[in-house]
């Protein structure tokens, strides 16, 4: 990680750390902690998607499906097989990774529109399975009675504990991805995005890297799904449908997909919008999302983080020598 990223990392970690202390004393905003738990869960999905889409340049409209594979794996294993939630989580992640690998080998040979359609189709198929396999998933009415997570034998109920747990995962995920990006693997991913033929000619096994980063994004989404399941204690297929895959795209686009910070920013912003600020639009919500997506794609293709340096003191952003995550 570059110095700049370390600074942003520490400052963000500090802000996230004190956030509950600031909002909790005020009744009108104390539920923001709960909103931020969801924001953290979605941020985890978005970090993976940003690696795939922003850095390696491969589109996926299937992240909700991997999110769902994690959620249902955790749900089914704990409800039907009474497995420990902490053991179920890696099983779900492995399953999501395996499915991504199987799908990725043929799918990632496709480009652009075809890849988008293939992942879209896959996502819809997974959602149909969630609806149809009633015996396991509970079908459209959902899966109930999912246990919570416990640490050291004690179940965590308090949302504050959830908050720090989820954001702990987010920061671990960020750290992992930053390390990957600032290494030969990260350079290879960006090279694939920019000039695939040249990357291949320089000895980068482009097909393998694309599949690997796809698997990585699926694992991130799956872990987020497991956290979501145990936090909600109830899941149904409508949280993992096409609309949600597009929501994840939207989050990453709004924040700025060529930056991990953008992914986090987008997830937080959109979660607040969805939970807090867009209620006034009621059923017209989707038009607002569509319009937002359109505006971002047309006018701010690099997302909100690309506007931030203009707002903050220039010293922080311009001093660093490496350009590794501006590209």
């Amino acid at each position: 990680m570059s110095k700049k990223d370390w600074w942003i990392f520490l400052v963000t970690a500090f802000l996230i750390g004190v956030f509950p202390l600031v909002v909790q004393p005020f009744r009108s905003v104390s539920h923001y902690v709960d909103v931020m738990v969801f924001a953290g869960i979605f941020a985890l999905v978005c970090i993976g998607l940003s690696m795939l889409m922003g850095y390696a340049g491969q589109i996926s409209i299937a992240q909700a499906a991997f999110f769902g594979i994690g959620a249902y794996s955790s749900g089914i294993l704990t409800v039907h097989f009474h497995m420990n939630p902490w053991a179920a989580m890696p099983v779900g992640a492995a399953l999501a990774g395996f499915v991504a690998w199987l799908l990725g080998i043929p799918a990632l040979r496709l480009k652009g529109h075809y890849l988008a359609m293939a992942t879209l189709g896959f996502g819809v198929i997974v959602n149909i399975i969630m609806n149809e396999e009633v015996k396991w998933t509970g079908g459209p009415s959902g899966l109930v009675g999912i246990p919570g997570l416990s640490i050291g034998g004690r179940e965590i109920f308090h949302e504050l504990a959830w908050y720090y747990l989820v954001w702990g995962f987010v920061f671990m995920g960020l750290l992992f991805c930053f390390h990957v990006l600032h290494s030969r693997v990260g350079r290879a991913l960006r090279a694939i995005h920019e000039e695939e033929a040249a990357a291949e000619a320089m000895g980068v096994p482009t097909a393998r890297y694309k599949v690997q980063v796809f698997v990585l994004s699926a694992i991130f989404a799956s872990i987020a799904g497991s956290l979501y399941t145990h936090y909600m204690a109830f899941i149904n297929p409508s949280s993992f449908n096409l609309e949600w895959s597009i929501q994840f795209l939207l989050m990453v686009m709004v924040g700025g997909m060529q930056s991990l910070w953008g992914a986090v920013l987008g997830a937080v912003l959109m979660t607040f919008m969805r939970n807090e600020w867009l209620h006034v639009f009621a059923d017209q919500e989707i038009i607002v999302y569509g319009a937002l997506l359109l505006i971002v794609a047309l006018f701010v293709p690099k997302g909100l983080v690309s506007l931030l340096p203009r707002l903050l003191p220039s010293r922080i952003f311009k001093s660093s020598g490496t350009r590794e995550d501006e590209s």
Binding site: F176, R184, V185, R187, A188, R190, E194, E195, T322, R323
Partner: peptide, 26 residues
């Protein structure tokens, strides 16, 4: 790779001569 730096471009050329993968780097 036009948005990568000059140095990063050459560093990419070291790809066949280095090994670390996702886990090792992450």
């Amino acid at each position: 790779f036009s948005s990568m730096t000059v140095l990063e471009n050459v560093m990419l050329g070291r790809h066949p001569k280095s090994k670390a993968g996702f886990w090792a780097t992450g």
